[in-house]
Design a binder for these strands. Structure first.
Length: 113
DNA sequence: GTAATGACCTTGG
DNA sequence: ACCAAGGCCATTA
């Protein structure tokens, strides 16, 4: 343990923490930005470990490609994610981000290497 | 040690 | 356009 995945996790956390307030992104976008486009699943796993990660990672701003709050179940409470997003003026209906396409924040585009 | 699962995405039919 | 399968890699059983 304590290997490269730690760095990978840190990179994921770093990108997630860079997400502007009121914006959302997808696992694939982050994965692609890190160069691990095919390991998008690991990004989600990283999020799972983000709970004990410091500083606090705004995992609620990370949703799947569908804009669906797939990881709400993994939060402290299933409503925590939605409330957190709503707290940032992001409307959530049926566990889905409204205007997700508009609020979508792609590190590959916004950060643009 | 092997097998199955998972906060997903891309490609093929 | 919709449905099915594959891939990727770490964690858990």
């Amino acid at each position: 343990m304590k290997k490269l995945q730690n760095d990978f996790f840190e990179q994921v956390y770093a990108v997630v923490r860079l997400i502007p307030e009121g914006r959302v992104t997808s696992y694939g976008a982050i994965a692609r930005y890190l160069g691990t486009a095919k390991s998008s699943r690991m990004v989600g796993y990283a999020m799972n470990a983000s709970h004990h990660a410091l500083p606090v990672v705004p995992a609620h701003r990370v949703v799947n490609r569908n804009g669906l709050l797939t990881g709400k179940n993994h939060f402290i409470t299933i409503t925590a994610m939605q409330e957190a997003l709503e707290s940032e003026q992001i409307k959530i209906v049926n566990d889905e981000v409204i205007a997700f396409k508009t609020l979508f924040w792609d590190p590959n585009i916004e950060l643009e290497l």
